[in-house]
Write a protein that binds this DNA or RNA. Structure first.
Lengths: 337, 337
DNA sequence: TTGAAAGCGCTAACAT
DNA sequence: ATGTTAGCGCTTTCAA
């Protein structure tokens, strides 16, 4: 098992040239069928495996894509990642993952590890800090280095690249109107992620829907989950509320708990609808009606878009694709009947 | 931005040799400080970035590690992955991820994508199907190709390599004895993963503890989560039960629900303790007492072990490290007082 | 049908 | 202090 048989080794053993071996193993018809077989057999018996790095250097294609996500413990991202992996593998690509942990610095460093030729393209979702500070020169760098890139979910609008997002605006609209249809009129919106693009879009969608419905919007922005209990309790004491839409999943679960602590029944007194269809939504009691973003599909679509771009199947201009959300009805909202 | 400046380009522009440029950029003192600066400046203005693939080919080191996990939607694995990413990044390594989706074939293919020189080492946890069918020639291949490997959590005992596991046996023992201390005597064990190594170990730990306590064990093996409701309901009707230990997290949540549907109060009538400290445990009602495996630490430890091996800091013989579990007390069990 | 040679981009031992 | 050369392992054009 002395390590790594190379073409050179095989050539020496077989007493032919390196190029003959290479051609034979690649089934090049230039080489006679007998020699091909002889060479293949020896290659096999020596457990020859072509060195992928050398191939990449030669071909200038690594068949791998770099993925940068803000967090992997957020279920949404791990679902997207699942979609990315499935689709990449299907198309013969590997994936290298970097986590930005929501930090600009880590995101920027991850980009540096990717623009040195180690990947053929990049899929990323913007870190919270980056969006807060509105930085994007590091993204521009990717463009400047001609590395194909697809942004998903949290995107930087200043950057010209392919994008895959969710119709967050419309999703929140739908959620709000859904509550209205089940009889709610005093609907509040809880937003713990107003500083990231999707949080803002969801808030806007809610406000828009409320205006459409001739109702007055009421938005609760919180920096921090700990504040939800206090803010919501206060609100419940000062205001009639019969519906709550939240910009994420966790807030919805918290909202349910807070409402119950204040003596309200869910969904009889108050209906709650959250964003993101994850485990929490499924296992909370009552189970949570949510706006699902089809995370897995987003991942797959991002890969398709990127690979089409890499393989030159796309039009020149960047495309922005929007995945439609869908309401998953569970028990935290009244039935539509 | 015509793509990719190379050393050659810089050499031409600067009218020096390629090696001079290379040395200058690597701060080689052979090169005079003035030339170094001049070269660095030009390199910068041309946005030169060394090609990582070429460097890898030359150095025979990719600074990346390959990770193969059975699933990413299982929170345990995404937590381990988080630990892996954090530790790798800290030590200057990238990670390539493949998912086996619990399938032998995909696992085997993933191994093939890794033994061609694209990674310096492999971290993996064995797919369910692989464990069921007791296959391991593909793992042996990794060894034969001299690729350093660390197995974590679900390991193949036939393969001689570094391993990081959880003391599943002891964890289940502790859980069982914990229930006993809170007053339970009729404790059953629900096992939906008896076909994978850790499931078996947990079952054995439970049985051992019961015997120690002079109680008679009662194990419910299920192939499928759907069966839990039926099996447990039946059991509850025929047998006095005051404690349930499960081999995973989800079964515990189901067990709670089934017990409640049958009119039992948790934890007053029945205490429930699960394995894996995830979201479900935190958000179930009542919140679930669990045996935590310190997933993140497992990931970090796996990386440390692998890199120490790669960098030649380990003894020759494979080491098997065991991470101790810990009981996280929540509300599905009676207090120890 | 086979082989020689160049080159992918880089590093480094060895001249100069 | 700088340059020449060889070579990492592979592919591929061109020559024999």
């Amino acid at each position: 098992m002395g390590s790594k048989t190379t073409l050179k080794d095989l050539a020496r053993i077989l007493e032919v040239s390196i190029s003959t071996v290479s051609k034979a193993l690649n089934d090049n018809p230039e080489i006679s069928i007998e020699t091909r077989n002889r060479i293949k057999q020896i290659a096999k018996s020596y457990k020859y495996v072509p060195n992928n790095i050398a191939q990449s250097l030669k071909s200038k294609s690594t068949k791998t894509i770099g993925v940068i996500i803000p967090a992997i413990l957020l279920e949404f991202f791990s679902k997207v990642l699942y979609g990315i992996e499935v689709e990449s593998t299907k198309r013969g690509y590997k994936i290298i993952i970097c986590l930005s942990n929501e930090l600009y610095k880590k995101e920027s460093e991850s980009i540096d590890t990717f623009i040195n030729g180690s990947v053929d393209g990049i899929i990323l979702s913007v870190a919270e800090e980056t969006q807060k500070k509105k930085k994007h020169s590091h993204f521009q760098k990717i463009i400047n280095y001609d590395v194909p890139m697809v942004m998903f979910d949290r995107v930087a609008k200043e950057i010209e690249c392919d994008k895959v997002t969710v119709d967050d605006f419309e999703g929140a609209q739908k959620a709000t109107k859904y509550l209205f249809k089940t009889g709610c009129e005093n609907i509040v919106f809880i937003n713990p992620i107003s500083n990231i693009s999707v949080g803002q879009l969801r808030e806007d969608g809610y406000i828009n829907a409320m205006q459409d419905l001739q109702l007055s919007p009421c938005v609760v922005n919180v920096d921090n989950y700990n504040l939800i209990e206090k803010e919501l309790t206060e609100l419940l004491q000062n205001k009639k509320i019969d519906g709550i839409v939240t910009a994420d999943e966790y807030s919805a679960v918290l909202a349910i708990n807070v409402a119950r602590l204040n003596g309200y029944k869910i969904p009889d007194d108050i209906s709650v609808i959250g964003f993101t269809n994850g485990l929490m939504a499924e296992y909370s009691i009552p189970s949570l009606t949510v706006v699902s973003q089809h995370a897995e599909n987003i991942g797959k679509l991002a890969v398709k878009t990127l690979l089409d771009r890499i393989e030159g199947k796309s039009r020149k201009e960047p495309v922005h694709q929007i995945v439609r959300t869908k309401i998953i009805e569970r028990n935290s909202t009244k039935k539509l009947n």
